[in-house]
Amino acid sequence: MDNLFLSSAEVTERSKQIGIKKANNKARTTRSLAFMAGMFIAIGGITNTVVNIVLSPGIAPFLGAFMFALGLMLVLVAGGELFTGNILLYGAYLSKDISLKQLATNWGRVYLWNFIGALFFSCMTHLTKFDPAIAESITAAAAGKLNLTIIQCLAGGFLCNVLVCLGVWVSFSANDGASKFVLMAMPIIAFILLKYEHSVANMFYFSFTAIESGIDFVGVLKNMIPVTVGNILGGMFIAGVYQHAFKSN
């Protein structure tokens, strides 16, 4: 039973090794898995929306947040490259196992293909027969995001990815899919309930809204840029703290 889960030091090493592998993946592998991750997060986003529509207000937020965790579960278990989670590659950079060029290339490639995956899912959803209430709820959520200040976007992005990366981090301590999901789900549920800002989820909300009713693209940039910066800083914070705590010298 002592070896059921890895220790914090072992998780730090596993995260570093995963980061090295991701940084050295073939470009087509990264593109394909990032595309799927964009779709997975979009699936989590729309499922969360449906739950909030059909269930009573008392229980809907929690169950909706739980269903959103489906997106990250698919990334971790089915396989995907998610921008927010890949900020943890910063640990491998700090240990000098990957270069700055490898780090930046991975982040840029994954970010782009996460967007393409989210956009593809939005387009396909638009072509299906879905409840108009879903579109109303998503566009309302997007409008609320456009009303956030730059500081709110930055802080919300930072705190979001602290929780997302903690979810990914603790999932690394387990070897089976069920344990990974249980460990990962709690931080994800927390960030949804607290309404923090996730750049890839926002790609879905904004692209869906743009297709359905049009959107202020300047406003989108005013949200996405600080949210993305906040996500980067939040992930670097988690990777940096643990790498510093358990570095070998």
Rank of each mutant, 00 (worst) to 15 (best):
D2Y: 13
D2I: 11
N3K: 13
L4F: 09
L6V: 04
R14D: 05
R14H: 04
I18T: 14
K22G: 10
A23H: 00
N25Y: 12
R28S: 15
T30W: 03
R31Q: 13
L33M: 15
F35V: 05
M39T: 11
G45M: 11
I46F: 13
V50I: 15
V50R: 13
V51M: 14
S56W: 00
P57Q: 10
A65G: 05
F66R: 08
A69S: 15
M73A: 14
A78P: 01
G79L: 05
F83Q: 09
F83V: 01
G85C: 04
G85W: 05
G85M: 10
N86K: 09
I87W: 04
G91M: 13
Y93T: 10
S95P: 02
K96W: 06
K96Y: 00
D97Q: 14
S99L: 03
L100K: 14
R109E: 10
R109C: 14
Y111I: 08
L112S: 09
G117Q: 10
F121M: 14
T125R: 11
T128L: 14
A133S: 11
A133V: 09
I134R: 11
S137G: 05
I138W: 09
A142E: 10
G144V: 08
I151Y: 07
Q152V: 00
G157T: 04
L159Y: 05
C160V: 07
L166K: 07
L166M: 12
G167L: 04
V168R: 06
V168F: 10
S171V: 05
S171M: 09
D176C: 03
D176V: 00
A178K: 12
K180G: 01
P187K: 08
I189T: 06
E197R: 01
H198M: 03
V200W: 05
V200T: 07
M203R: 04
S207A: 11
S207G: 11
E212I: 14
S213F: 00
G214W: 06
I215K: 05
D216K: 02
D216S: 02
G219R: 12
N223S: 11
M224S: 05
M224A: 08
I225R: 02
I225A: 09
V227D: 04
T228D: 02
G230D: 10
G234Y: 03
Y242R: 01
Y242C: 07
Q243H: 11
N249F: 13
